[in-house]
Computed example of a mutant assay.
Amino acid sequence: MNNEAIREMFKKNPKWKNFIDWIIMNQVETRPRWFIRILSPLYQHRGKHSVIHSSVRMDTPPYRKFSLGDYSVIESFACINNAVGDVIIGNYTRIGLHNTIIGPVTIGHHVNLAQGITVTALNHKFENPDIRIDEQGVSTKPVVIGNDIWVGANAVILPGITIGDHSVIAAGAIVTKDVPPHSLVAGIPAKVIKQI
């Protein structure tokens, strides 16, 4: 039975899904329990010569995919979270210091993310004023970062964004719209400054 079939089975039985989720995830810390984290080398895919520094917070439960490509690095104090969607990172890619990646996110090959970057496909629902925000759940829109991309320090890439190949995101930019290939974007919200 593959992962998709298992997910479908649990969707049809919410009580079992909630029970399994309770076993895997610490409900207060909203991260996998310690005994699940110990088993992570068994279910995470790490490419040859890839490096995940010991201080990285890997919130990667086994019911979603995490894949790190060959010769890729996740630097110190980053946080990788695939609890609501897969996180796929290509070859020769560097996830910088203090980055936060919340899936579903796909990052291509030869991508350099500088320091303090947030890439999130998750948003909290808040439309109903009669219900507390923390009770309304979350929504996700996949983020896709192409190949040969540099993202400057402290940039934010929001849900649903696609960044085209060979693009540069300037430091501090907040990306709210798709970025065409071969573009330099900057600002809040980020706008195309020039083609490269």
Rank of each mutant, 00 (worst) to 15 (best):
I6M: 07
R7L: 10
R7H: 14
R7A: 09
E8K: 11
M9H: 14
M9D: 15
F10A: 07
F10P: 08
K11W: 10
K11S: 11
K12L: 03
K12S: 12
N13M: 06
N13K: 08
P14H: 07
K15I: 12
K15Y: 10
F19S: 15
I20Y: 05
W22M: 12
I23G: 11
N26Q: 03
N26G: 03
N26M: 01
V28F: 08
V28Q: 14
V28E: 13
T30W: 14
T30Q: 13
R31I: 09
P32T: 01
R33C: 03
R33K: 07
W34H: 14
F35K: 12
I36M: 02
I36F: 01
R37S: 10
R37F: 01
R37Q: 12
I38D: 09
I38G: 06
I38F: 04
S40A: 00
L42M: 05
L42T: 03
Y43Q: 02
Q44I: 13
G47E: 09
K48R: 09
K48S: 08
S50P: 08
S50G: 07
V51T: 12
S55M: 06
R57M: 08
M58T: 10
T60N: 08
Y63N: 00
Y63Q: 05
Y63M: 04
K65V: 02
F66Y: 00
F66V: 00
G69T: 06
G69D: 09
D70T: 09
D70W: 02
I74L: 02
S76H: 12
S76A: 13
S76D: 14
A78V: 05
A78D: 08
I80W: 04
N81D: 10
N82Q: 07
A83P: 13
A83G: 12
V84T: 14
G85K: 01
D86Q: 03
V87R: 00
I88E: 11
N91E: 12
N91P: 08
Y92Q: 09
Y92N: 12
Y92H: 09
Y92A: 05
